[in-house]
């Protein structure tokens, strides 16, 4: 890595000839960010996702009440100045629980992606680069898992693993990796005989170096698009497991479980179930919009 840009070159300028690799990277990132911000729908997505992460981090500062503090004197009271989104059947403040509920949701999304994406990604890369019998076997396994009904399989897995946040993560991750494997295999197939790969091979680089050093960096953008779009689906599946009582366990504030708790009083106190659902819709929408925007910006093959 060369020295930082010379002071003569203003770092903000998108100079056509970057002085260093780092400067080129910064310029590219800046350009991409500008294109995401320029598109209204992906900008909305970015704002929602950033807000969601900030809310999860700063939940204690944003909440007006302890999320698990019960007060039976005010149970099931409608939205008011004291309780912005009303209270649930234990007199807990729905707004504060909503704010704290961002934490398990963010945790689940990050853990599922960190578990499933690298696994599927490496499996697909190896299959695509190696070819032959290894590819046939690995992709056959991928197809088999891909053909399973995801939610039902996750239900059965959680049932044996015992309900809980971490087990919900494992169950979702087990069914979430195949799309990454297919994606990575397709990319590796396309790149395996590219000139720069042949050149690296000619210079004596081993298979591991080629797969992880040469091919993998080029696949990162399509994987990050896929992961962003996947996050909405993960949120919905996790909420479904929480709703069925198989995800986060009470009294932890989790949006799906909160909807389940509001279910029994939905005709009398609709806000208890309505509020967490709106939070799920908004955050999922944010990830979907951002994913669409990233695809437009990062994927040169995709237009329209």
């Amino acid at each position: 890595m060369s020295a930082p840009a010379s002071p003569a070159v203003a770092p903000a300028a998108l100079s056509p000839a970057p002085a260093s690799r780092r400067e080129a990277r910064i310029a590219l990132a800046r350009q991409r960010l500008r294109r995401i911000v320029a598109n209204p729908s992906s900008l909305i997505g970015l704002v929602i996702v950033v807000t969601f992460v900030l809310v999860a981090i700063f939940a204690p500062l944003l909440a007006t009440h302890e999320p698990n503090a019960q007060d039976f004197a005010v149970r099931l009271s409608p939205p008011s100045a004291a309780h912005w989104l009303g209270t649930d059947q234990f007199g807990r403040d729905v707004y504060s629980r909503l704010v704290y509920g961002a934490r398990p949701t963010l945790l689940i999304v990050l853990m599922v992606v960190l578990l499933s994406a690298p696994f599927g990604f490496v499996l697909g890369l190896v299959a695509g680069y190696a070819g032959g019998l290894l590819e046939a076997v690995l992709m056959r396994i991928t197809d088999i898992v891909m053909a399973f009904p995801r939610l039902v399989l996750a239900l059965a897995l959680v049932a044996v693993l015992k309900p809980g946040l971490i087990n919900a993560v494992i169950a979702i991750a087990v069914t979430a990796w195949p799309p990454y494997a297919r994606l990575a295999r397709a990319e590796a197939l396309a790149l395996r005989h590219a000139d720069f790969v042949e050149a690296a091979r000619g210079l004596g680089m081993g298979a591991r170096g080629i797969v992880f050093g040469q091919i993998m960096p080029l696949c990162m953008s399509s994987v990050s698009i896929r992961a962003t779009l996947d996050m909405a689906g993960i949120i919905l599946t996790a909420a479904g497991l929480g709703f069925l009582g198989l995800g986060a366990q009470p009294p932890l504030a989790e949006w799906g479980a909160m909807i389940a708790q509001g279910r029994d009083q939905v005709f009398d106190a609709w806000w208890v179930a309505a509020a967490p659902g709106i939070a799920i819709v908004v955050v999922s929408l944010g990830f979907n919009l951002l994913g669409d925007g990233l695809r437009d910006v990062l994927d040169p093959k995709h237009h329209g």
Partner: peptide, 22 residues
């Protein structure tokens, strides 16, 4: 499609019961 991909079906069902039944 975007709304469908972002909305939990069980929550829509609950709201539907609230509005159209109750």
């Amino acid at each position: 499609a975007l709304f469908g991909f972002s909305t939990p079906v069980f929550w829509l069902g609950l709201l539907g019961l609230l509005v159209f039944y109750s």
